[in-house]
């Protein structure tokens, strides 16, 4: 199995310039009581351009994580005109999601494998070749997140923050074009979360080849700190109710007046539009 590595010709941005194209996506889940269906998305359309750090902001349970699962091909929509990643539809061409990597809310590490073993689990799954590259890749990314001395430890031996760092290594190590992150810092204490946010932005912004990040959160200040584009979603069925381009340099802090202004505005809109529908 040969897999094109990011950076190879195959991965030129699609003509549209959008790494992710969701057009008229409808997704309905059967209700738990078996009566009818629960609409999560109705004719939802969203394009995400290459190299953007897009934050999906919305109330809990509005289907933000579901959207990432659709993009990663873990879920199939009820109907859709297109669910395209890098110009290829994930429904007919699931292999394209090898170029996406997923960081989950909890680290989801295999507790019987060392941190290194967990990262290798991902590399093996994605079929990264040649195998000799693994060491070099792992060395690089474990180094970047400061885990070099901990690769032989088991998840239960390290802190929650370090587990999440290892999960980030597992996702980044293959240098995927698209990174899907589902509230990756929400389980961590604020100090650790702030540090990881800073690291993530550094990691992302210093990469020569800009990767596309789709980051899900319900935390407005996190959204403003990270996103180049913030998309606000309403409760189910989720719709885009507000969009904000944040054209500020990183790293951003709350002390920065402009980001504070944006955050304030978003809070107002959030309370007004993304509240629970009657």
């Amino acid at each position: 199995m040969t897999v094109a590595r990011p950076g190879s010709n195959e991965l030129q941005p699609p003509a549209s310039g959008h790494d992710i194209e969701l057009h008229n996506v409808t997704l309905r889940f059967p209700r738990p009581d078996g009566k009818g269906t629960l609409p999560v998305y109705e004719n939802f359309t969203l394009d995400i351009e290459r190299g953007s750090f897009t934050v999906l902001l919305g109330p809990s349970g509005c289907g933000k994580s579901t959207l990432l699962n659709l993009i990663d091909g873990l879920l199939t929509p009820t109907s859709a005109d297109s669910v395209k990643v890098l110009g290829r539809d994930v429904r007919t061409d699931p292999d394209v999601t090898r170029h996406t990597a997923y960081v989950f809310q909890s680290a989801r590490l295999l507790k019987w494998k060392t941190l290194r073993g967990n990262v290798e689990f991902g590399l093996k799954g994605l079929g990264v070749q040649p195998r000799e590259r693994w060491d070099e890749l792992m060395k690089k990314y474990f180094g970047i997140v400061g885990l070099t001395d901990f690769t032989k430890y088991y998840p239960h031996q390290v802190s929650g923050g370090m587990q999440q760092r290892a999960a980030i290594v597992r996702a980044w190590v293959n240098e995927p074009q698209i990174l899907l992150m589902d509230e990756p810092f929400s389980h961590l204490d604020e100090i650790t979360a702030a540090e990881l946010r800073r690291e993530l932005i550094t990691l992302w912004s210093r990469d020569e080849q800009r990767r596309t990040v789709v980051f899900v959160t319900h935390d407005i200040s996190e959204a403003v700190q990270l996103g180049s584009r913030i998309i606000m979603l309403t409760p189910r069925p989720a719709e885009i109710c507000f969009e904000q381009i944040v054209d500020l340099p990183w790293p951003r802090t709350d002390a920065d007046e402009r980001s504070f202004e944006i955050e304030k505005r978003l809070r107002l809109v959030f309370a007004e539009r993304a509240g629970v529908k009657a």
Binding site: L74, R108, R170
Partner: peptide, 13 residues
């Protein structure tokens, strides 16, 4: 299930 989902996300056989 979340581990299974993780594994599928990494395209494991």
């Amino acid at each position: 299930d979340d581990l299974g989902e993780m594994a599928r996300s990494y395209k494991t056989s």
